[in-house]
């Protein structure tokens, strides 16, 4: 039996959670003993190639592409984990949720004081995904199995959760790993 596969992605996040993930440092050598990586920004594989045991999702959904990716993860991962505050709660991107979408776009591309846009156009190239009406945390789009809060969750927290899951042991997250002040 091959090693379990892990896929990761960053949706409407800042990649900070992935950076924190890399902060497991040399333990990444232990990790690749335990798992194979599938789709992930770390190895630049663009689509999930086969069934994965675990999917790690950073960031919430702010556009249709995020939803598309999240659907791919949900379809192909046995366990889906939201990690970081954007994935679990929407985070900073949700600051726009109280402002109508049109106002946001007008401010960014038309009316902002530093904007130069003589044609007065807004992004409409088919290559650019359409924004959603508001930013959604992942669990409002698909079923999420576990949540790891933190901005970002610390490397130790991610390590503890992943190794517990992979070795089939109950996860122990002491207070220090979930305390952020």
């Amino acid at each position: 039996m091959g090693k379990p596969r892990v896929a990761t992605t960053s949706l409407a996040g800042c990649f900070g959670c992935h950076m924190s993930f890399l902060d497991i440092d040399e333990r990444i050598l232990d990790l690749i003993e335990l798992v194979d990586f599938d789709r992930s920004p770390i190895d630049d594989i663009k689509h999930i190639s086969q069934r994965c045991a675990i999917g790690l999702v950073e960031g919430g959904c702010c556009n249709e592409e995020n939803v598309h990716v999240l659907y791919e993860f949900r379809e192909n991962c046995d366990i889906l984990i939201s990690f970081g505050d954007c994935a679990t709660m929407g985070g900073i991107p949700t600051l726009r949720n109280n402002i109508p979408l049109k106002e946001c776009i007008d401010e960014a591309y038309r009316d902002g004081v530093t904007v130069y846009n003589p044609k007065n156009i807004v992004p409409q190239d088919p290559e650019i995904p359409l924004l959603l009406d508001k930013v959604y945390p992942c669990h409002e789009v698909v079923k999420i199995d576990y949540f790891l809060p933190g901005c970002p969750p610390s490397a130790d927290c991610l390590w503890a959760a992943l190794t517990a899951l992979l070795t089939d042991k109950p996860v122990e997250l002491p207070y220090e790993l979930l305390k952020y002040d």
Partner: peptide, 9 residues
């Protein structure tokens, strides 16, 4: 969810 953006673009 994409209806508004679809109208704008």
């Amino acid at each position: 969810a994409v209806e508004q953006a679809s109208q704008i673009a």
